[in-house]
Design a binder for these strands. Structure first.
Lengths: 187, 187
DNA sequence: ATGTCATTCTAACAACGTTAGAAAGGAGCG
DNA sequence: CGCTCCTTTCTAACGTTGTTAGAATGACAT
């Protein structure tokens, strides 16, 4: 068939999302993952130190996707609202990844580049220290991820309630948190 | 030694918290759990259908502890603030349980009894529908649990940052969310 | 003593993450 | 072409996991 189907870390992570999307977190084993790549399980360990590191790569990829969508120069509320929506969309697109992102939080390096952008946006219109600003952003990230986890908990079983229920939940929770920022730290 | 050390579901759940607290989530296997009870692993299956059900019992116990602490007749803000603090304390007392509670959210029955109490408290001073009120409470629950998960992620390794860092994070996040409720739905 | 019933046991299964070391295969060079 | 080197994948195995079937145990009632 494909004798020279060499693999690399990128291909492994991509296949991991594939398995996650199609069969859920529980089905993601090194063996099934290797099978998707037409390779034996031990071969994965040449490219990835272990499964925990692989899951970290998955979590980081989701976070990076959200972070790289940041648009400089926009007001803080738009920035955070977009972040919330982007994160939710990313987790909706990869439901099995929600369980990964929840437990393995993203590596600091992923966020580092975005820190100045976030701080400048939030200092423009809010009275917050740097620590407070970052705490608020991370709290929103955690909140959205927690909601997604409740919605997509054990995929690929579809959510228990209709999508509209979770839409309303998301809107209420995020808007309330953003209103809280405005009320508590608004200039 | 103790030949008639019969076990039951209660003893199993209690031992599960013991293992969780002492050695963390990763160490909680049916075999180590059975060993703590001086029993063989297969015996557990007479009292508990499987491990998932056992983890559900753990998650439900944490939630029940928080819910049964609700005090009727108090204003909504005090009620929610106490809930947040109680949940955090419960997870701090059982750090390994945070990972369980995050993934397996509590059974609806646990919250059912508390629904009228919560609704009456929130309708007293807020303009919210029943759905909105419950969404807000659940969102706060998810938020606090997510923060605890970031703090206690993989026990028994101590948190990466000093406790004061997480205290500040918790205070900022919870106060902001409560301010958001006040600002958005205050009467 | 005998039988009944609840509980725990032994033994085994398939699947998991992981490792050591052997095989494969192309690249560069004589 | 033949040889060596180096990267990558392989086979095979280890210990552990959740789970099940069916045999043993033991207390209690008859």
């Amino acid at each position: 068939m494909s004798p020279a189907a060499r693999i690399d870390t990128e291909a492994i992570v991509h296949a991991a999302f594939d398995v996650l999307d199609r069969e859920g977190f529980a089905a993601l084993s090194m063996r099934t993952l290797a099978a998707h790549l037409e390779v034996k399980a031990a071969s994965l360990y040449y490219h990835v130190p272990n499964k925990a590191a692989l899951l970290q790569l998955v979590a980081d990829r989701v976070a990076r996707q959200v972070v790289t969508a940041f648009v400089p120069g926009r007001p803080w509320r738009e920035l955070l609202h977009r972040m919330a929506r982007d994160l939710r969309e990313a987790l909706r697109a990869h439901p099995g990844a929600a369980a990964v992102v929840a437990v393995r939080n993203a590596s600091p390096e992923v966020f580092e580049n975005a820190v100045p952008l976030v701080l400048s946006a939030m200092h423009e219109g809010l009275r917050v220290t740097d620590d407070e600003a970052l705490h608020l952003v991370q709290a929103l990230y955690v909140l959205v991820n927690g909601l997604a986890l409740a919605e997509f908990g054990e995929t690929p079983e579809p959510p228990a309630a209709p999508a509209a229920y979770y839409d309303a939940w998301f809107d209420t929770a995020v808007s309330t948190f953003l209103d809280g920022i405005q009320a508590r730290h608004g200039a």
